[in-house]
């Protein structure tokens, strides 16, 4: 497996008021791989992933220190708007825009950023991305209807299509299946496997099996520290740290 780095996190420290949530973490994420970030509740995994596309800017009580390098640039010093266009995020709860149709939802990134597209360009972006997430056949009859009548799993795939439409280099998934049933979860997991050909994926999950099923690399976080980071195979077969081993055997979590 070729190891091209896409994102490098160095000495990252995130605190809210005087509470350190992420304590001096350094790790690299690899291109066209799926990296799972797992750990027990409160270990800081969501906080870490949200730092990667500057979502912490929304809340002034978050202080982020260190550096995140992407394309030779430090993300923490770049324009957050540009960062978010290249590093897309899909959230825990499916959140298609209820005031937009399915068609418009896929184009939401362009609509929001005021990018003008011709009718043909729009049609092709919508077609390509709905096909990518396997939603095209399911919704092609009512593509101009609101997305709110879709099932939870379909809504989540619509949200992934919406993020992919912006052609991001990195796709962040924050527990993308935690609000979905097993069948919808399997579909999303298969989709993640397909998508890593074109985009690097970093996903947060509290589901150990999910991490083992879909990821190439796994990072184990515990109380804000990066305990172990290696290929998923190594982590799951020969964990080096006792805490990783205990977590995998469900001693806590």
């Amino acid at each position: 497996m070729k190891k091209d780095t896409i994102l490098t996190v160095e000495n990252l420290e995130i605190s809210v008021k005087k509470n350190k949530i992420i304590k001096n973490i350094s790790l690299s994420f690899y291109k066209n791989n799926v990296t799972a970030i797992m750990g027990p509740s409160g270990c800081g995994k969501t906080t870490l992933i949200r730092a990667l596309n500057r979502m912490h800017d929304l809340d002034k009580s978050f202080k982020v220190k260190g550096s995140i390098t992407f394309d030779t640039q430090n993300l923490l010093k770049s324009d957050p708007i540009l960062v978010r266009q290249q590093i897309g995020m899909v959230f825990q709860r499916p959140n298609p825009f209820p005031n937009m149709s399915i068609y418009e939802n896929v184009l939401a990134g362009y609509i929001l950023n005021g990018i003008k597209l011709s009718k043909d360009e729009k049609d092709s972006i919508v077609d390509i991305n709905l096909k990518k997430v396997g939603l095209y056949d399911e919704v092609s009859d009512n593509i101009h209807r609101k997305g709110s009548h879709l099932s939870g799993g379909q809504q989540q795939r619509l949200c992934i299509a919406r993020t992919l439409a912006m052609k991001p280099k990195v796709l962040l998934l924050d527990e993308p299946t935690s609000a979905l049933d097993p069948k919808a979860t399997t579909r999303i997991e298969n989709l993640i496997n397909e998508l890593k050909k074109e985009v690097s994926i970093i996903m947060v999950t509290h589901n150990i099996e999910q991490a083992s099923r879909v990821s190439d690399y796994t990072a184990f976080l515990y109380l804000g520290d990066l305990i172990e980071y290696n290929t998923t195979e190594t982590i799951f077969t020969v964990p080096k740290d006792k805490r990783t081993e205990e977590y995998l055997s469900r001693k806590y979590g």
Partner: peptide, 29 residues
Amino acid sequence: VPNDLVEAAIGLGATPYEVIKHIAIPYSL
């Protein structure tokens, strides 16, 4: 206006003005 919609829009690279114009106002029309 639900926070997850605002976050979704911001996650797509929208500025506060764009969030207000395309998400918050249509949602609360």
